[in-house]
Design a protein around this nucleic acid. Structure first.
Lengths: 199, 199
DNA sequence: AACATGATGACAGCAACTGACATCAGTGGG
DNA sequence: CCCACTGATGTCAGTTGCTGTCATCATGTT
């Protein structure tokens, strides 16, 4: 609170702007500096110039702060699939969405690596990541159903798409990788087709 | 502790047997009766005639008690895949494991339904379920790699197998289902092949 | 009989999260 | 110009999940 108090009475608005963004930044910094478990919510709130209670007004829990922007990602997936030509096969529509998402990620490789290092170091964060991916999968399946795809094809296509995304993402952020995300998705998708082609 | 105290001095062993099993039973009962969040660890321990501290000696956390037996499941997956003929395609080996697991589950449909109702009612439990499935996927991928399958084919095959398992499982425990688990797996696997068959 | 072991209990403590109420700048009607 | 209202934040007390540490004590071993 100190910062707000110091700057107060100067004609500025009552609170420092973008509390949520400040909390996210502070959390990310601390998670990288000391690790997730070694960071308390009080630490985060203090660095952001806020209180613990306010943190929990902006984020459901200590993990959720790493998953801001998930809604936009899901929106991009869904709208891209919805816009695919009517005669596109389900997996083609999903593939188009994967490419759109890859384009969005491409300029943020370093940030993705840093964030993923934090997540990979903590099982609780991995759980949260998995349930977010499952949420994406459900949304994709629902969109496919809207396009007339029936079950279990819709869910299987969605889960396959998420698998391709997940595996391509891991390869994209690998330390020794120099390929583009979009290319890795194309490769993984092709590999999936080969693997499921048998008998 | 009351039960143990009452029965004490009668020539029985010092502690009631199978503390872990009693804790699991008590937890399951309470989760079904009042729901997961409405049940405290103290409640569980008391019903089992033990203390909270002892609960945490047997289970890493309040969720883990619903996932006892996960190791055996993974072992069944892995050993079945490892035993597949050398010339079996990766997805065929995984399919054989899925059938083996289905056979194991078949007699416990009611129990599976009850357990899944508890899990579906709580996001935290769904997270735990997802990370267990991810663990299975990793183990399967590792086994496939031992068989000479390279990446990303191994991981993609493993994740596809888990998708098929997951979707077939949901259909198997659906209230209106009368088919056998094994048959639903065969269907889902066929649907996966159709879905990924496109040019 | 002395000793080691292993499962449990007892107790203190931290940190995540929640509910209830207070504060107070900005806003808009009267 | 005042006043009621709103909304973001602060304050505080409380519950619960989970951990560290030490004590207890039947059992098995030597």
């Amino acid at each position: 609170m100190s910062v707000a108090v110091i700057l107060y009475h100067r004609g500025m608005s009552r609170w420092q702007p973008d509390a949520r963004g400040r909390l996210q930044l502070a959390a990310m910094e601390l998670y990288v500096e000391r690790g997730f478990e070694q960071t308390t919510v009080v630490d985060i709130a203090e660095r952001a110039g806020l209180t613990e209670r306010t943190f929990f007004r902006h984020f459901a829990d200590k993990r959720e702060v790493l998953f801001l922007g998930q809604d936009e990602l899901q929106e991009l997936f869904v709208s891209t699939i919805a816009q695919a030509p009517d005669d596109a096969a389900p997996l083609e529509a999903v593939a188009a969405a994967l490419q759109a998402v890859a384009t969005e990620f491409e300029p943020r490789r370093r940030w993705s690596q840093e964030r993923q290092r934090v997540i990979n170091a903590n099982p609780g964060l991995q759980e949260r990541e998995l349930i977010k991916l499952a949420g994406l999968s459900s949304a994709i399946a629902a969109t496919l159903r809207d396009r007339g795809v029936d079950e279990p094809a819709a869910s299987l296509t969605a889960e396959s798409g998420i698998s391709v995304f997940h595996i391509a993402f891991q390869r994209w952020i690998a330390a020794d990788n120099t390929r583009e995300f979009s290319q890795l998705i194309t490769q993984s998708l092709a590999a999936l087709k080969v693997v499921t082609a048998g008998g």
